[in-house]
Amino acid sequence: MENYLLCCDWGTSVFRLQVIHIADFTVLAQEVSPDGIATTFNSWKQQAGEDAVPKPEFFRRQLKTKIAGLANRASIPLDHVPMIISGMASSSIGMEDVPYAQLPFALNGSRASVCYFDSQVDFPHEVYLVSGVRSGEDVMRGEETQLIGVTTLLRSTDRTLDDAIFICPGTHSKHMYVRQGQLVDFHTYMTGEVFSLLATHSILKNSVDVEQLTDSLEHSPDAFKRGLKDADSCALLNRIFTTRTNQLFGKLNSQENALYLSGLLIGSELKPLQKKTKQELVLCCGSSLYPFYTLAIAELGLADRTTIVPPELVDKAAIVGQVILFQNHRKKLNEVVK
Rank of each mutant, 00 (worst) to 15 (best):
S216W: 13
L198V: 11
H187L: 13
V178T: 01
E193R: 03
N206Q: 15
D185E: 06
E126M: 12
F224R: 12
G181S: 01
A231S: 10
R179D: 00
Y177L: 06
R179T: 01
V133Y: 03
S196Y: 15
D158E: 07
S135D: 05
V133A: 04
E218P: 00
R226D: 05
L198W: 09
V130M: 08
R159C: 03
H172D: 02
D122R: 10
E137T: 13
L153H: 04
T151M: 15
K225Y: 09
D222S: 13
H201I: 01
P221Q: 14
Y177S: 02
E218K: 14
L147Q: 02
D232M: 11
H201K: 15
D230Y: 14
H172I: 05
Y189N: 06
K225P: 00
S202L: 06
H219R: 15
E143Y: 14
F224Q: 08
V210C: 13
E143L: 09
M176Q: 04
A199W: 10
L204W: 05
Q180Y: 02
K229V: 11
T200W: 07
T157Y: 08
T157Q: 12
G227S: 10
E137H: 14
M176S: 02
I203N: 05
L236D: 00
S220R: 15
V184P: 00
I148C: 04
E211Y: 10
R159T: 08
T157W: 08
S220C: 11
L154K: 04
L154S: 01
I165Y: 04
G142C: 12
G192E: 07
L197N: 02
L217Y: 12
T151D: 01
D122F: 12
F186I: 05
F123W: 08
T188D: 02
V127E: 06
